[in-house]
């Protein structure tokens, strides 16, 4: 079997196993949509300025973009990290290592699958926002920019998911490590609560350093028409490259003892 056929077969089986696992399917799909409903129901009538010189938009539109970003992060970072930690602990990775499938194909298979799931989630979130809140959908150039950010973000957060497994001691600790590393950042990056312009500067600095805020801004640009900055894409990509380097050096296929 050639590499392309091997890769598509791999994606097919990863996909099968994903949909049959009630926990992964539920948390990945239900959580972002549930939060979207909760936040928009609580705060739906307010308006907000995304950035100082950006347009004033309905908060529901803001949350459509924010929850799309959240959905992508949980479909990539959370799923990859927790899934790999479980597979590493239970010996699936070691078994795979004993077969002739190249590591690159095995890992790329998971990446491609995570990207598909992320796209589906964004489409669902956007359709929901369009139907119930008349959220604007990107077309033309903003759509192209949006897709670039989606692709770069998916790859970067997958790489970060791989990287974090190097510090996860075992499968039991995986959800704790993953949530402890991502939840504070989601709050500090304005995913759940919009960042006010008078937010403390230390908080804004954290948001500026880590990739979540930049990814969210890129998603915002598609949905709410705020300016699209290539620096956001570059910062997210840089995190992805760094995470890839860490994974390449420290990723292990065998359970940690």
């Amino acid at each position: 079997m050639n590499s392309a056929a091997m890769l598509s077969t791999q994606v097919k089986y990863v996909n099968k196993a994903f949909w049959r696992n009630p926990a992964s399917a539920f948390f990945t799909f239900a959580f972002p949509l549930m939060f979207l409903v909760i936040f928009t129901s609580l705060l739906g009538n307010h308006t907000i300025k995304v950035s100082a010189n950006g347009p004033t938009i309905a908060i529901s539109t803001y949350y459509v973009a924010a929850m799309a970003a959240y959905a992508v992060i949980s479909a990539t970072y959370n799923n990859i990290a927790i899934g790999l930690a479980i597979q590493r602990d239970s010996g699936v990775l070691k078994r795979t290592r004993g077969t002739p499938i190249p590591s690159g194909i095995y890992i790329l298979g998971r990446l491609i699958h995570a990207f598909f799931v992320a796209v589906i989630l964004v489409v669902i979130t956007a359709a929901y926002g369009r139907l119930f809140y008349h959220a604007a959908l990107p077309t033309g150039r903003p759509l192209a920019e949006f897709l670039v950010m989606l692709l770069v973000g998916t790859m970067a957060f997958c790489a970060l998911g791989f990287a974090i497994t190097t510090v996860i001691p075992n499968a039991d600790a995986a959800p704790a490590v993953v949530n402890a590393s991502i939840l504070p950042l989601l709050f500090l990056s304005g995913i759940f609560i919009p960042l006010a312009s008078n937010a403390p500067s230390w908080l804004l600095w954290i948001a500026r350093i880590f990739p979540v805020r930049h990814f969210a801004l890129g998603m915002d640009a598609g949905f709410v028409g705020s300016p699209f900055n290539w620096t956001d894409v570059l910062i997210v990509a840089a995190w992805g490259v760094g995470a890839f380097a860490v994974s390449y050096r420290f990723f292990t296929w065998e359970p940690k003892r």
């Binding site: 079997m1 056929a5 091997m6 077969t9 791999q10 089986y13 099968k16 196993a17 049959r20 696992n21 597979q87 602990d89 239970s90 010996g91 699936v92 990775l93 070691k94 078994r95 077969t99 002739p100 499938i101 359970p255």
Partner: peptide
């Protein structure tokens, strides 16, 4: 220790590993 994907069925599991060879 024998880890495998718990959500695939028996034939799928063997077919998946077959595709590596």
């Amino acid at each position: 220790s024998s880890g495998m994907d718990r959500y695939l069925n028996v034939a799928e599991t063997v077919a998946m590993y077959s595709s590596y060879y």
